[in-house]
Design a binder for these strands. Sequence first.
DNA 1: TTCTATAGTTCGGTATTAATGAACTATAGA
DNA 2: TCTATAGTTCATTAATACCGAACTATAGAA
Lengths: 106, 106
Amino acid sequence: MRPMTHPNLEDITLEGIFYALSDKTRLRIIANLYKEKSITLNCMQAMCGIDNIPASTTSHHFRVLRECGIIRSVREGKECHSQLRLDELDQKFPGLLQMTMNNWSE
Amino acid sequence: MRPMTHPNLEDITLEGIFYALSDKTRLRIIANLYKEKSITLNCMQAMCGIDNIPASTTSHHFRVLRECGIIRSVREGKECHSQLRLDELDQKFPGLLQMTMNNWSE
DNA sequence: TTCTATAGTTCGGTATTAATGAACTATAGA
DNA sequence: TCTATAGTTCATTAATACCGAACTATAGAA
């Protein structure tokens, strides 16, 4: 299993972030993580309320979110715990995540 | 030539907008249109400073922007004049375009 | 220590979508 | 009517996404 990679702050691009946000499922995941800002969630928790996505697809979505720089994930035991890179993102693209969540309904 | 179609405000989706914004060339177009908010630009003007994109690709990008609801285009003579749907977008997704332009550099 | 369940990842094939050269349309002006 | 301009559409190739099946890594039970 290859190690999880995360881009450095300076390598995160606006268009990369927008790409990650251009999918309903990923927006729902982000919304779940945003609700629980202060704690990390495992995949199942982060997928709470999102219907019936195959595990492989879920894994793909988390990879997209990770590799564009929106979330940070660490393996803990047999789970993978993720959280938003809130402070970093807010430093690089002020207001982006907040605006997104303000405008996200569903 | 089929007529240009634009979605109604209620059919514009957040993920659709993000998809349109997930491309460097389209972000550059948006930035050009944003600079000249008050006037409409033809394709060539809107592509100002953007290097060497084939006409067919340009046309494709404008179509994506149009069909997601970011811009409105009308044919005027042999040109196609476009402008941001600024007020409408601001009503539906407050702050989205402004945040995007604040965070766009290039 | 093995066995089993859990939580996720990776691989590979199919299906969808994007980019672009070539041909086309529509209009303006000579 | 002829030519140039501004852009669109079509068709092909190239890149990506989705998802079942097989795999990995860990935890806890037997």
